[in-house]
């Protein structure tokens, strides 16, 4: 009954010990990123040039947006494995609509609607039917994959895309790629929602302790569903930007965004608030992936080896988080 409470001195001591450990954990990944950056800068000629750095930003912009969406899912303790195919779907639908004469704003709205629709199906399966999100989104992902190839016949959709649309993916504003602005817009939006609004607070609440949140009067079902809708919605945005960048809609273009997107969140979870998915963490996670991809490309390393390197990095990140926090993904 009366558990012996430690004295104040003891409490302080353990707290400061923990604080030191926390600090090292929080910043070790960031430190690794800096080392990696310096390493490439010193050893690879073309790495530290304005063109290449802007290139990195351009390369990670879609990935960051997918990762920012997934951050909502992770925060609510829901996983979305359909984001890669959602990127693909939006990247096909919008060019298809544009080519068949739909005005640009409507086509973009259509892409967003597709994201919301897929998210709504995912969240209905999870919160109303009760299918675990990992399984539900694995299945809807497979369905989207099929749809992507059926609608395109497996071929790229190109030709006749309006210049304004392509500008989103290829244009520049004040010497900086438009994609970079798009990325910053969505990162700031996601950060704001998660860190500064009741909406984000409740997403963290249902992920942190669903029972406590529901007993506090929070609508657990709604916030879990909302997190899954954000996952799909952000993936749809990334898909529309990707097609604009590629200048065509390609049925398999989105696939790598699932694994890389998850990796950004995992890496991010080692930083700032270890064990918790945060938008800032995810952003640096994406930067991490971007620098590695870019550096290894410049060295001329085989893409398959890159895939192995990325897999190892994800393992290390997840191992760090699992060992130091009570990580429960499912």
């Amino acid at each position: 009954m009366n558990a012996a409470s430690p004295t104040i001195a003891q409490a302080k001591d353990t707290a400061s010990g923990r604080a030191r450990k926390d600090w090292m954990l929080k910043y070790s990944t960031l430190f690794a990123l800096i080392l990696l950056f310096l390493g490439f800068a010193l050893t690879v000629d073309r790495f530290l040039t304005t063109t290449n750095l802007l290139n990195i930003v351009q390369q990670i912009s879609m990935l960051t947006i997918v990762g920012a969406g997934l951050t909502f899912g992770f925060a609510a303790r829901e996983m979305d494995l359909s984001v890669g195919y959602m990127v693909g779907l939006a990247g096909i639908l919008v060019p298809l609509m544009l080519i068949s004469g739909v005005p640009l704003p409507l086509a973009l709205l259509g892409g967003i609607a597709a994201g919301v629709l897929v998210g709504a199906v995912n969240s209905a399966l999870v919160t109303l039917v009760g299918v675990p999100s990992l399984i539900a989104t694995l299945a809807t992902g497979s369905i989207l994959y099929g749809i992507n190839f059926l609608t395109t016949g497996g071929r790229a959709i190109y030709g006749g895309l309006p210049e304004t649309y392509l500008w989103f993916g290829q244009g520049q504003l004040l010497g900086i790629p438009v994609l970079a602005y798009a990325m910053m817009l969505f990162v700031v939006l996601a950060w704001f929602l998660m860190e500064r609004t009741i909406f984000g607070r409740y997403i963290y609440a249902v992920g942190g302790n669903l029972k406590a949140a529901e007993l506090s009067g929070v609508n657990g079902r709604f916030y879990r569903a909302a997190a899954l809708v954000v996952c799909s919605l952000f993936a749809a945005v990334a898909g529309m930007l990707l097609a604009a960048r590629l200048g065509s809609g390609q049925p398999n273009a989105g696939e790598r965004y699932l694994l890389d997107g998850l990796a950004t969140v995992f890496i991010g979870m080692t930083m700032f608030r270890p064990g918790t998915a945060t938008v800032t963490g995810t952003f640096f996670g994406a930067l991490f992936i971007g620098v590695i991809n870019n550096g290894l490309n410049l060295i001329g390393m085989d893409t398959y080896i890159q895939s192995i390197v990325k897999g190892l990095i994800i393992l290390v990140a997840v191992a760090i988080v699992s060992r130091t926090t009570k990580l429960k993904l499912l």
Partner: peptide, 8 residues
């Protein structure tokens, strides 16, 4: 278990 979020 029922009331607080441990990570908060």
């Amino acid at each position: 278990e029922n009331s607080l979020v441990a990570d908060w």
